[in-house]
Design a binder for these strands. Structure first.
Lengths: 343, 343
DNA sequence: TTGAAAGCGCTAACAG
DNA sequence: CTGTTAGCGCTTTCAA
């Protein structure tokens, strides 16, 4: 049985003063005599008084809880964004509750509801890959619960969001492939309804055009963002009469799966097929060959998301601020076909 | 500005009854007429009434918050344990707040304090690798805050814990190496003060003895649980006059680093050096060659930890239950030197 | 300069 | 069967 922590009342009783006096002294209210203030503060420390957040929350109608919904928690990408969120949350006196949707629409809805029941002050969300219906978010907006999206967002909803410039990044990848002598560049994309799939696809196509390459529909495969489907997609590419000489995976999970499948087919990376991923997971450096990937300013993404959310929570101002951050192509062995590039 | 959610009072006013009547009806108190009960419940649903957890918490002196402190959040091992914790927590009406110590003692202490301030109902903790002083936990115990350790525990404290049988697992690894023809088996261990280091070391030594192998002190290196130190340790092993023909890493992070370093030295895995990790991370299958590792019942570990903690929270009973789970050696290419083993 | 009282949302003991 | 009241810990008028 937990002991009851000391309350203002306890301190008040011990000193024979009123609760309000103690309350005031502790927040340096000018109307309390310096001596009393001092005495009260001393006792508070001695008894290790900590204000009861429940009582404060009840009074102010706020929990200081920020709900964070992510598709998964086991990738460096999300873990790092969460870290960023946490760093500013803590600084501002909030704590975060993480909820993983496991890429499932149903679990995402559940998470929203749970967080709502727990009276979270606001939500930071990255959509699950299944999510096509947004009514759970619309009702949040209706109830004016502060909400911020990141990475995978709902474009039709006027909600602040933090994204990266996936179009630019994908375009750069295509150019990088081209410069390394690749001419049949394949793209394993994600579900078409996700902004990240669309953006990167657009960049891919743009890059092809800029490089004077023709678009071959059979080189663009759409699949779910998991290893199993990516393996199948890769297999499909490798069974083409004319196989690609480069593959761009929409994320590193996809690229890792592709790498495995390419090796299985006795093809060399990058000599036969150059490979590039996206998001730059921890293990990009560990796989063999090391995977070229697109690193994201994840920490910053998290921080920005938290900053915007807390701003909305505390000022009550609505915002539709949309922040687009730039990424960086981290070139490693998996895409370095040409020797000319002095790398 | 968030709208105030509906309260019992709102419902009571709308129906012209008292608050307590509404409260009772909603929890099927027998003393309320069926019709009234029905009417009240209907309105509650219509207005989507949700009880205010802050008010409940204040009344019952509990937050329904479970604090979870882990060394990191980005490994599959911890992410999966957290999942397990979450599953039973949710079932029992608790939510969890995850705090990462980043393997830092200072951050661990901070996390404990934050969770304490937030009035978490209990804590589930895996020690940071730096932690040697346990006063922050002792004060928890003094205040009778329910506490459960997992994996890396404080043996001197009488606190319930969930661990795996690392001794048995390490012994099996040694045998596995031996059966594959290895005779100079090295072990890259973690900080000596951690129970996991000690347990596995003991198993390693036991295994050597059982296989009739001599212990060579230069084949046992103690390092911190990170890639940089593991790389150094591996280098040290590879610079020996007589290099090992097998390396056992205390976890997969260490093993991955070793793998990289071994390859760098132009040695083949497993032909020149067999390699085995621990915890069976997601990427064990992705690296080349696939890494033999020790898989943990992570989901179950999390569930058990949560179950025990909640039991303590709700019954107030003290417990020193110690659960030791078995692991499984998952054999992959990195350790299969011999062809005789029909695998 | 300090205290008393109301109220945040809820439950439970006590009256009717 | 239903209402009134007190109280969980805290802040904040309003009184003194």
């Amino acid at each position: 049985m937990k002991k009851r922590p000391v309350s203002l009342k306890d301190l008040a009783n011990e000193l024979g003063v009123s609760i309000s006096t103690v309350s005031r002294a502790l927040k340096n209210h000018p109307n309390i005599s310096p001596e009393l203030t001092h005495k009260i503060k001393e006792l508070a420390i001695k008894r290790s008084y900590v204000p009861n957040p429940l009582a404060m929350g009840l009074l102010r109608q706020q929990t200081k809880m920020i709900g964070v919904i992510v598709p998964d928690i086991v990738t460096y990408f999300f873990a790092s964004i969460i870290s960023g969120i946490e760093s500013v949350a803590e600084e501002k006196g909030y704590y975060i509750v993480i909820s993983s949707s496991s890429e499932l629409y149903k679990k995402e809805v559940e998470s929203v509801n749970n967080l709502l029941k727990a009276r979270a002050d606001g939500l930071i969300v990255c959509l699950s890959q299944e999510t096509k219906d947004f009514s759970h978010f619309e009702s949040l907006i209706r109830d004016e619960i502060p909400l911020v999206f990141f990475d995978r967002i709902v474009e039709s909803l006027k909600v602040p969001s933090i994204i990266v410039d996936g179009t630019e990044a994908a375009k750069n990848i295509t150019h990088h492939f081209y410069e390394n002598g690749c001419r049949r560049i394949a793209y394993i994309s994600g579900p078409e309804h996700l902004n990240i799939s669309k953006d990167r696809k657009q960049g891919y196509l743009k890059g092809l055009t800029e490089c004077g390459l023709q678009f071959h529909p059979e080189l663009l495969i759409e699949c779910n963002l998991n290893a199993a489907e990516a393996t199948l997609a890769t297999r499909q590419l490798l069974n083409l009469k004319q196989i690609p000489d480069a593959i761009f995976g929409i994320n590193d999970t996809v690229a890792f799966a592709a790498m495995k499948e390419i090796k299985k087919h006795q093809l060399r990376i990058p000599e036969d097929i150059a490979l590039v991923g996206f998001t730059d997971e921890f293990h990009s450096k560990i796989v063999d060959p090391a995977l070229t990937s697109v690193s994201h300013p994840t920490w910053k993404m998290g921080q920005e998301a938290a900053r915007i959310l807390i701003e909305i929570i505390e000022t009550g101002k609505k915002s539709k601020k949309q922040i687009k951050l730039q990424t960086e192509l981290v070139i490693r062995k998996s895409s370095l076909k040409a020797t000319k590039s002095g790398l």
